[in-house]
Design a protein around this nucleic acid. Structure first.
Length: 521
RNA sequence: CGGGGCGUGGCGCAGUCUGGUAGCGCGCCUGCUUUGGGAGCAGGAAGCCGAAGGUUCGAAUCCUUUCGCCCCGACCA
């Protein structure tokens, strides 16, 4: 509520004033999650130097080098996974003839409101306006029709890395911006079964990627009719748990059936010699994943990045008093950096090798200032290196986030550290996943009564709740109307409680299984 | 698009009610001293007060319009 927001704002102002009086607190401080979660989210992005609002272009953002580097890591691994599963990259035009968009009835309905349209070009009014792609099903459908003649042309497995534009009414950095970066896979198959397999295969690719690379646990499921992609028969998704209890749809994989095949006349001759419409799929993840990353791992000290997507893995902070010490410490730092830079931290599926990125922070700042600085950027490992360490042949290591196994500063012989650095980062990666999983589990409940439901979702509160649902859109909308809670997904096998009959938490009607409910981004 | 809040050096803000030509903290630059959790001193640079009109002798301040950001809502990856 706006009152709530006001309170937060006032609370912050007071905090700052007190801080000033005490002469200790800094305005560089990041809002705490407890005091003002949305502000915290923005602060983490700003201080973490991931992105900033473009301002001169409504609803758009500038992804800064550190943020873009995270996206590049995401791209590298995912692109490898797409190629592992037989897909090839291609690129289609940014502009889509308006007539294409309107060919699939549900598709138009879903996307028309958020289209940006080009009506003038070359100093003249265009005969037919172009839509700036909100997604590429239509224009790709057009080309698939030209490329596909026979069952021998199938399956056709294409992926595109691109930008898209959707004129959203409300934007938030990474989570929803007018323009965003993504990949969209588009495939065509000879049978519905084959298409369904593809939908599931790519959902699993996303799920595995989210967990193994982003250390972001997800629940795989199927969307209800209201949340389905415009023009799809079926939409599957991965849903991630954010620290404020809300859900984030982190990726989707759609069974398009023959809807676009029919709209764009994508036919093939089957083995029996008959003409048939192809069965298509599409699937995508976007820069939204970075927003998910922020809200999965980061803390009140700022950004936290899993090593596999961290642009910088190690920050070495030299500590010295005299010029002589400075020279010695920097020399040792160079030596350590060189050794670390040999360590391969490629993600499992990336086609390119990624070695540890190490920075030696020799800026003329006090060490403490540098500590805070690299913490805000989410760098997994910090090495403090001073005269005492050189004497003892050791390094002082601090991981960005304490884990049950490793907390606080550790003093390790230099050689041991180098030898164990890769494993330490992988352990840390695993610990972040585990921590995120525990956080989600601690905030996942099974609810059976409407009173419990109302209590769980009171005010701005949210959790992951497994509830029985009678399967009707009417009930789904009524729940949303009353509480802002939506059905995030119907879990796939093993992704939620085992199916057991029950009664709908809202209507009391019979239900076959529990579904995941939560407020969502 | 509706409701609310906000645009003043890079960041955070004061000044706006009661018009008189812009200030504070942090950051930034230079120098010296410093360096194991946000350093100190000295000197310095930087703002046509979101934009456009208007009222006025005079506008950050009043009026109108407009753009953008944030929060809440409806729509969505």
């Amino acid at each position: 509520m706006s009152q709530e927001g006001q309170k937060h704002k006032q609370g912050q102002k007071q905090g700052q004033k007190q801080g000033k009086q005490q002469g200790k607190q800094h305005e560089l401080a990041i809002a705490t999650r407890a005091a003002d979660y949305p502000q915290w989210y923005q602060d983490v992005i700003r201080f973490g130097e991931l992105a900033e609002p473009a301002k001169v272009v409504k609803g758009c953002m500038v992804i800064k080098p550190h943020g873009y580097a995270v996206w590049e890591k995401i791209q590298r691994d995912l692109d490898g996974r797409f190629k592992d599963t037989g897909h090839r990259n291609a690129y289609f035009p940014l502009l889509v003839p308006m007539s294409f968009i309107t060919k699939e009835a549900e598709h138009v309905e879903g996307f028309a409101p958020e289209l940006a349209v080009v009506t003038r070009a070359g100093g003249a009014e265009l005969e037919e306006p172009y839509a700036i792609r909100p997604t590429s099903e239509t224009i790709i459908g057009h080309f698939f029709a030209k490329w596909i003649d026979s069952h021998r042309d199938l399956p056709l497995l294409i992926n595109q890395w691109a930008n898209v534009m959707r004129w959203e009414l409300r934007t938030r950095m990474f989570l929803r911006t007018t323009e965003f970066l993504w990949q969209e896979g588009h495939t065509a198959h000879a049978s519905h079964d084959e298409a369904r397999e593809e939908v599931r295969r790519m959902l699993d690719v996303y799920g595995d990627f989210a967990e193994q690379v982003l250390a972001m646990p997800v629940i795989r499921g199927t969307k209800t009719a209201t949340e389905r992609f415009a023009g799809a028969l079926d939409t599957t998704c991965i849903e991630a748990y954010m620290q404020d209890g809300k859900a984030l749809q982190a990726g989707t994989s759609h069974d398009l059936g023959q809807n676009f095949g029919k709209a764009f006349d994508v036919k093939f001759q089957n083995e029996a010699g008959e003409l048939e419409y192809v069965w298509q799929t599409s699937w995508g993840v976007s820069t939204r994943l970075i927003g998910g990353l922020v809200m999965t791992h980061s803390d009140d000290a700022g950004l936290v990045l899993p090593p596999l997507v961290a642009p910088i893995h190690v920050a070495i902070i030299p500590i010295f008093r005299t010029d002589e010490q400075k020279a010695q410490v920097l020399e040792a730092a160079q030596r350590i950096k060189a050794a670390l830079s040999e360590i391969d931290l490629s993600t499992p599926r990336a086609r390119f090798r990624d070695f540890l990125e190490v920075v030696i922070d020799d800026r003329d700042l006090r060490p403490g200032a540098k500590f805070y600085d690299w913490e805000r950027r989410g760098v997994p490992m910090r090495i403090e290196l001073g005269p005492k360490d050189l004497e003892k042949g050791q390094v002082c290591l601090k991981m960005r986030v304490d884990t049950p196994a490793v907390s606080g500063k550790q003093f390790l012989p230099e050689a041991d550290f180098i030898a164990s650095a890769q494993q330490r980062l992988l352990d840390y990666q695993a610990a972040l996943l585990e921590q995120a999983r525990e956080r989600r589990e601690a905030n996942t409940v099974t609810l059976d009564t409407w009173d419990q439901f109302l209590a769980t979702f009171a005010g701005e509160d949210s959790k992951f709740a497994w509830c029985h649902w009678d399967g009707t859109t009417q009930t789904e909308l009524a729940i949303k109307e009353a509480t802002k809670v939506t059905i995030r997904c119907v879990p796939l096998e093993g992704q939620g409680p085992a199916p057991e009959p029950g009664v709908c938490i809202f209507s009391g009607q019979p239900s076959k299984q529990r579904v995941l409910m939560a407020k969502a981004y």
